[in-house]
Simulated assay, not measured.
Amino acid sequence: MAKKPLGPVRRTFSPWEEPSNQPFIEFQSVTKTFGDHIAVDNLSLKIYKREFHALLGGSGCGKTTMMRMLAGFEQPTSGCILLEGEDITRVPPHKRPVNMMFQSYALFPHMSVWDNIAFGLKQEAFSKREISARVAEMLRLVKLEPFARRKPHQLSGGQRQRVALARSLAKRPKVLLLDEPLAALDKKLREETQIELMNLQEELRMTFLIVTHDQEEAMNLADRISVMDAGHILQVATPGEIYEQPSSRYVADFIGDINFFECTVKGMNASVATLDSAELGTTLQVEVGEKPQLGSSVTLAVRPEKLRISFEKPEGENQNILQGEVWDIAYMGDVSIYHIKVSQDHTIRTIVTNTTRLVERPITWEDKVWLAFDYDAGVLLTA
């Protein structure tokens, strides 16, 4: 029986859940050093055919080094890289069925859109007929047919991005590598292009690997995300699992906004742990999968949208209730972020969706309010 997914999924695609499926790309105990610096440290990862996989992390975490090793631009210090079960660790870049789209796009300014897309095909000595057919196909895919004879400087940033994408796809690689491909685009165009990328990947039925430091981009695009830090992969999971069930405090803090409560395990009753929070001066309850050790130090993590805010004390069972004072408010248009001071040294963030334009009595600064969150709203972290 398939496990119930955490959070919505953009498509029913999960080959990693079937043990008999062989990975399309596999990093086996790969280490890469530059002098005394360890960029990638004994890392293993499996990526499956037709998967849109994201390597997510801050600057210097090793994600770009991983991509460059897969492309062949860097050689692992130790370990090996497999593609369709074949060791490609020492295969030169031009002989790998892999293509890379760079952040800078690297278009030839003196060439037209048509010639930029055709360049790699000409280098590989494709016939004129095949080049014409392949370029026409790419122009259709990226919706740039009317711009075929324009030069890069005559295009918008989004159009140049699509030319670079078409050129990367023209040779029909088995894997497309995307190195921060949308970083130069404004927010609205970036969101539109993300949808185009997802649709294109599904239409071509290809394997895409994207490197990004943008958590929203990874969450929007990827079937699975590898969260990286200091050359290690901390968690590999779907966006919903990464967000709702982070494996560590680092992952929880890196993906989205979150509240942390430092606690001590006080007791257990069936699947509910009772936690003593010294910083809040109260006890909290949380549903757990694995029972924590009594007396151990743990962190309770709760996303801001899981908390409810009200003037009246909430009623009902199976919820944690706290009282505090509105310390600050950030109005974001669609939502408002409230910072509630619940103790001398602790402030909790909660999110309220602005579903109506006007409210009779809005919650505002210095108001005394109640906060509530269900027992199953939090995640207990031990790492």
Score class of each variant (00 low, 15 high):
96 R>N: 04
97 P>H: 08
97 P>K: 09
97 P>G: 10
98 V>M: 09
98 V>K: 08
99 N>T: 12
99 N>D: 06
99 N>C: 07
100 M>K: 05
101 M>K: 07
101 M>D: 01
102 F>T: 03
102 F>H: 07
102 F>S: 04
103 Q>H: 09
103 Q>F: 12
104 S>P: 05
104 S>C: 06
105 Y>K: 11
105 Y>S: 12
105 Y>F: 13
105 Y>D: 01
106 A>Y: 10
106 A>N: 12
106 A>P: 09
107 L>H: 11
107 L>I: 06
108 F>T: 11
108 F>H: 11
109 P>D: 13
110 H>E: 11
111 M>H: 10
112 S>F: 05
112 S>W: 04
113 V>R: 09
113 V>H: 11
113 V>N: 07
113 V>Q: 09
116 N>W: 14
117 I>G: 09
117 I>H: 13
118 A>V: 04
118 A>I: 03
119 F>I: 03
119 F>A: 08
119 F>P: 09
120 G>T: 03
121 L>M: 14
121 L>W: 13
122 K>C: 01
122 K>V: 02
122 K>G: 03
123 Q>G: 01
124 E>K: 15
124 E>Y: 04
124 E>H: 13
125 A>S: 15
125 A>L: 14
125 A>I: 07
126 F>Q: 08
127 S>G: 09
129 R>E: 15
129 R>T: 14
129 R>A: 13
129 R>F: 04
130 E>P: 06
130 E>F: 04
131 I>K: 02
132 S>T: 13
133 A>T: 10
133 A>Y: 04
134 R>M: 07
134 R>C: 04
134 R>F: 00
135 V>W: 03
136 A>M: 09
136 A>W: 02
136 A>L: 06
136 A>T: 11
137 E>R: 06
137 E>V: 00
137 E>L: 12
139 L>A: 05
140 R>I: 02
140 R>A: 15
140 R>G: 15
141 L>K: 07
141 L>E: 04
142 V>N: 06
144 L>D: 01
146 P>F: 02
147 F>R: 04
148 A>Q: 09
148 A>H: 04
148 A>V: 05
149 R>K: 13
149 R>G: 13
149 R>W: 06
150 R>W: 03
151 K>E: 05
151 K>R: 14
151 K>S: 08
152 P>N: 09
153 H>L: 13
153 H>I: 10
154 Q>R: 13
154 Q>D: 14
154 Q>C: 12
155 L>E: 12
156 S>G: 08
156 S>T: 08
156 S>V: 08
156 S>P: 04
157 G>Y: 09
157 G>L: 10
158 G>R: 00
159 Q>D: 06
159 Q>K: 05
159 Q>G: 11
160 R>L: 03
160 R>E: 03
160 R>S: 05
162 R>W: 01
162 R>D: 06
163 V>P: 01
164 A>R: 01
164 A>K: 02
164 A>L: 00
165 L>A: 01
167 R>T: 08
167 R>L: 01
167 R>I: 04
167 R>P: 10
168 S>G: 15
168 S>T: 13
169 L>E: 11
169 L>G: 06
169 L>Q: 07
170 A>F: 03
171 K>C: 14
171 K>Y: 06
172 R>Q: 15
173 P>M: 05
173 P>Q: 06
173 P>H: 07
173 P>G: 07
174 K>G: 15
174 K>T: 12
175 V>T: 08
177 L>G: 03
177 L>Y: 15
178 L>M: 15
178 L>E: 04
179 D>F: 14
179 D>E: 03
179 D>Q: 12
